[in-house]
Design a protein around this nucleic acid. Structure first.
Lengths: 168, 168
DNA sequence: GTGATTGCAAATCGTTTGCATTCAG
DNA sequence: CTGAATGCAAACGATTTGCAATCAC
């Protein structure tokens, strides 16, 4: 689970954006942190109901929408479906800053490495593919303004587990 | 619309993989070519029904599944949804070759540039991000085995149209 | 008190499955 | 003729919407 203070940072950002501080929203944020910042709406509902049994799935979706607009959360595109949300580190670091700054970067490119076995995703910093972008622009005639990159593999834990079990 | 002979190439590959040459499948392939190799299942149904009114959506899905297994078509992950399929150039060029070769590469990484205005996607060749992969492995501890990259921007046509209209 | 927020039920959308009919080889 | 393929209807899972009750401020 992610540090407790993060919940308050997220909440602060949500409130600053003009939304109110409600019990249901707190439950969703708490669930998101307990899931290490990464879960599907259904998983968040289950986690959130542990603290607020009356929590509804609709509210989970609506809260994710808000977080998404603020750039605090991102949708991951996995092959099996595109309904996993992950906390955006960029957002986490800046929750104390101006919300508008965040919103502006909400749709910038995001980059995750995703474990093929346990599904855990980590956002990585620094993405220098400008050379590749240039090459593609030349090759295709497109003017490229954004890109979206995801890597897949095994996280450290699963590498260890795999080795122990003698697999892969 | 894509050259007519392509339909036959695709069909040939499907037959070679052990599936039969049916009227419905021909209609779907034809639709795919008419859509310049890029469409959603619903769009393919509409196009296909122009030639075979009895065509069912289920068959469109099943045909896309086959093409997908053979690596002849790929699913694009757009932000609005992940249900657009695009012909894979690699597949197109190799339809005459051994189908097993194709199937083996079906799940390799795919790379598209997608126009943000007209949604047209082009697959680009050559992807040299090994350095980036190395950096990410070092940074995160993950062992990266695959990656998935998409670029977004404006295609040549839409750049021209935008300039003419005085926009963007 | 008032408008925002909630949660339910129902609608909607995309996709898959069961099954009887039809077709290709 | 026989198994593969089709298309319909229905099931299904994920997401959205209408609406009355509730809550935050």
């Amino acid at each position: 689970m992610i540090e407790h203070c993060l919940i308050n940072d997220l909440l602060k950002a949500v409130v600053r954006a003009g939304h109110s501080n409600t019990r249901a929203r707190r439950a969703v944020l708490r669930a998101l942190c307990e899931a290490d910042g990464q879960a599907t709406p259904i998983q968040l509902l289950a986690l959130g109901r542990a603290h607020l049994p009356s929590l509804g799935l609709v509210t989970v979706y609506r809260t994710l929408d808000i977080l998404s607009e603020l750039g605090l959360v991102r949708k991951l595109h996995l092959d099996e479906g595109c309904s996993t949300y992950a906390l955006s580190p960029a957002g986490v670091q800046q929750t104390a800053d101006d919300v508008r700054t965040l919103a502006a970067s909400a749709h910038a490119h995001s980059h995750h490495v995703i474990c093929q076995r346990c599904r855990r995703a980590v956002e990585f910093a620094g993405c220098d593919i400008q050379m590749l972008v240039d090459a593609v622009e030349m090759q295709t005639g497109y003017r490229v303004t954004e890109h979206w990159l995801e890597m897949f593999g095994l996280c450290p834990d699963c590498q260890a587990r795999g080795a122990a079990a003698g697999e892969v």
